[in-house]
Structures are given as structure tokens and as C-alpha cells.
Amino acid sequence: MDYNITVEKLGKAAYDLICGAKEPPTVHSVFTNAINLKYQEDYIITILPQNHSCGTQTIILSEATFKILRSSRLQAGESFEMDLKEWAKEDYVIDLTIPDKLYLNNELSITNNIKCCLDEMKCSSNQDGLASCLFGRENIYTKLLSTKLSQIDLHIIEQDESKLSDKLCSILGLGPGLTPSGDDFIYGVLSVLFYYNRLSGKSSDWLSLAAARISNAARNLTTVISYNMLRSCINGEFSEYIKNLLIGILYGNNVEPLLKKVLQIGSSSGADIAAGILYCLKILMIKEE
């Protein structure tokens, strides 16, 4: 193909996968705004156009480049013959790790930020999945949530990685969407725990262990795309918009625009991730009290 590819940014795992690959990936699925490539057995890289959240297994292309790629009628299963190594420049790799040179807001500001997010979500988020659990509204999915997650607050506070991962595994693959709501919710919960833990200066080993257990279970309990999403958080790396929102809530203010970005992810995915974040934060704040 004889056009210029403009890569805007790249997740670290995508970079590593591209550099380490012996064979070209195959096309896994093609959507209006996403192209998924499959490596080896079950590694997925997602290609997105500008103004989408960049995760560690993501490549963000300029809008024009994405459109060209999208219009080249890629078919699921075919080999993706472009030279991805041309794309993978270290300069494009963005930092999705948890920053360590920030100072935590006081509890009141965090609580305020949480309230701000809840207000925003109440009126403007997609609540077809699990997000409605925040507002006491019931649907067939949230009905299951309270029993499945009972006592999770204790496991979080006690940092009991085995019980925590068991609980969270019980909602793996649950709910609507290509990344089922339950998985998005778990992703949200884990993101908070990783950030909060880092800040309190504690070791994240127990969390990595919990995340590893969950992603292992996810391999058989959910879709391959979801599995990849969960696997990516073992190292405490979360996609760009999630990272920005968490920094906003825990270290900053004016969280509304950051939350809105998250809510734009997928159809209900963004709302489900945010639900996980707020659900977990509320538990942590109660603990602090």
C-alpha cells in the first residue's frame, strides 16, 4: 500500500508485540471505529482513530490514516500484511503507568469529585449494563450484582487478594456488550485499587496477583477482547482516559470533562468502567472515614 501512515500513539504492549512478532497478525474483527488484530494465540491489538482512549494494547492512528485502512475492506481471518514495524517507533509509545510524583487530594475533595461524577453519570450515562447499580436502579444484570459482590468491601479493605479475585471473577463475562459489563466493571475496580495503593505507598504485589488470577480466569469466561483488556492491567497500566479520570478524581478537580471522555468509550463500556471506579472509590472513602 503506497500511502503514508501516521501513527499518533501506541501502547507499550502493542509496541512489544509488534517488535517481537515473527509472523504478521491476522485480522480479528473490523468495526466502524476499531480494527482488532490478533497475534499468536490470543493477543489482540486494537487500532483506533484519533480521539479514542489509548490502552497498552492499542495503536492510535490519525483520522485520515484510519479511514484509509478502514476502507481497504479488511476481512476477519485474513493476514494483515502491512509492515507494522514501520509503525512501532518508540517515540510514539505513551506512558500509561501510574505516576508517582503526585499528591493525593484530601478526602473531602475526593468525595466531592465522586459526587460530581455521580451527578454527571446519573443523567448522561448509558445504564443498560451495570452502571445503574450506582443509583439503586435495577435491571437483570444489576439484580445479580449485590449477591455476587457481597462483602467485597471487606476483601478490599483487608487486601485479601484471593477472596477479592474470587468475588470479581463471579461477574466475569456478565452482561451486554462485546466487552461484557462485568469485565468493564472489574477493570474500573482494579484501576482504582492500583492507583490508591500506589499512593498510600503500599506494595501493589497483592493487586497484581489478584489481576493475574482474574485475567487467567477471564481466558475461558469471557470474550477474547475482554480477556485482553483485563490481562493488560496486571502491571497496573490502564488506558489513557481511565488514567486521566483517576488522576482527576484522586489528585485534581474539574473531573467532569475527564469523566465524559470515559463515558464515550464503547456503548455501555465507558459507563460500566466508571461504575466500577466509583463503586470501589466509595468503599475506600467509607473505609477512610
Binding site: 500513539k9 489509548c54 505513551i94 506512558d95 500509561l96 505516576p99 503526585l102 489513557e240 488514567k243 486521566n244 488522576i247 482527576g248 489528585y251 485534581g252 478537580n253 474539574n254 470533562p257 475527564l258
Partner: peptide, 13 residues
């Protein structure tokens, strides 16, 4: 996109 300094700036808006 995505660095903390930026977020801080955004917050000032």
C-alpha cells in the same frame, strides 16, 4: 495527550 501536567492544566480551566 495523557500526561499528568496536562491534566493539571485542564483542571485550571
Amino acid at each position: 495527550g495523557g500526561n499528568p501536567r496536562m491534566i493539571e492544566l485542564l483542571n485550571r480551566l
